[in-house]
């Protein structure tokens, strides 16, 4: 690639005066040419070489030369601009190529910002991540398997529950039907269920039914109690 190799070192100390060095050099060159010309002929008589009517800087760009010989804007003093000028126009631009290299501390900062982890760290992190994902999947699968084992049992329970509910509803309906039938039998003729008498009778019947149930319950309780008392006395007698 390169016909020969330049080696420069960039130090912070010597970065300060790039622009000045360069422009001074340019001015010096200008000064010497002026001297030579004043020796030979009057400047005002020299014909203008630039007939293109282009601005000097634009003409320079056209001729692939450095557009400005002096800084015309603060931008021309920035490192970025001077690097670009060196990159484009080479050593002829008069810019010290040391400016192309970044100051060490700044480049270190850039490096740190973009690369937090080493390759080994990245690999181990990725491994940990994949393992965690796999574990989560396995956990979910095992949970599903455990639930599937119980599925048949749960299905049976559900069916029994539904069947019981239906049976209860049917029994209640039949009971009610029976009561209505009884009321009708009491009156001896067909009574409209919406009739007041019918309703009263039905209520009475229901009350009776409830009473009977209550008594039956009470009796059962007493029987139970008695059985216990008898049992305890018999055991006492034994002892």
């Amino acid at each position: 690639m390169g016909s020969f190799v330049f080696i420069y070192q960039r130090k912070v100390l010597c970065t300060g005066l790039y622009g000045l060095n360069r422009w001074n050099k340019a001015q010096a060159r200008f000064f010497t040419t002026e001297l030579n010309e004043s020796e030979s002929q009057d400047i005002s008589r020299v014909p203008n070489q630039n007939k293109s009517r282009l601005l000097n800087q634009n003409r320079n760009v056209l001729l692939k030369q450095v557009p400005y010989s002096e800084p015309h804007s603060w931008i021309h003093n920035t490192e970025k601009y001077q690097r670009k000028i060196f990159g484009r126009y080479g050593l002829a631009s008069g810019i010290d190529p040391r400016i192309c290299f970044e100051v060490k501390e700044r480049s270190d900062n850039i490096h740190n910002a973009s690369e937090q982890y080493s390759l080994q760290q990245l690999l181990s992190m990725q491994k940990a991540k994949t393992i965690a994902q796999q574990e989560a999947v396995e956990r979910r699968e095992s949970a599903i398997a455990a639930k599937l084992e119980k599925l048949e049992q749960w299905k049976l329970e559900m069916r029994n529950k539904v069947a019981k509910k239906e049976a209860d509803a049917l029994a209640a309906k039949q009971n009610k039907q029976r009561m209505i039938e009884e009321v009708r039998r009491h009156f001896g003729f067909k009574v409209d269920p919406r009739d007041e008498r019918f309703k009263e009778m039905l209520e009475q019947k229901e009350r009776e039914e409830k009473k009977r149930q209550k008594e039956a319950k009470k009796k059962a309780k007493e029987d139970k109690m008695m059985a216990r008392i008898v049992g305890s006395t018999s055991t006492n007698a034994h002892s």
Binding site: M1, G2, Q9
Partner: peptide, 25 residues
Amino acid sequence: YGLEPGWVIGLKDKLIIKSKSLPEE
């Protein structure tokens, strides 16, 4: 290929410019 990070390439003068502060140098 053939160029290393940290080198500056001068296309106009066909130069490779290296910094002395590069670890390799």
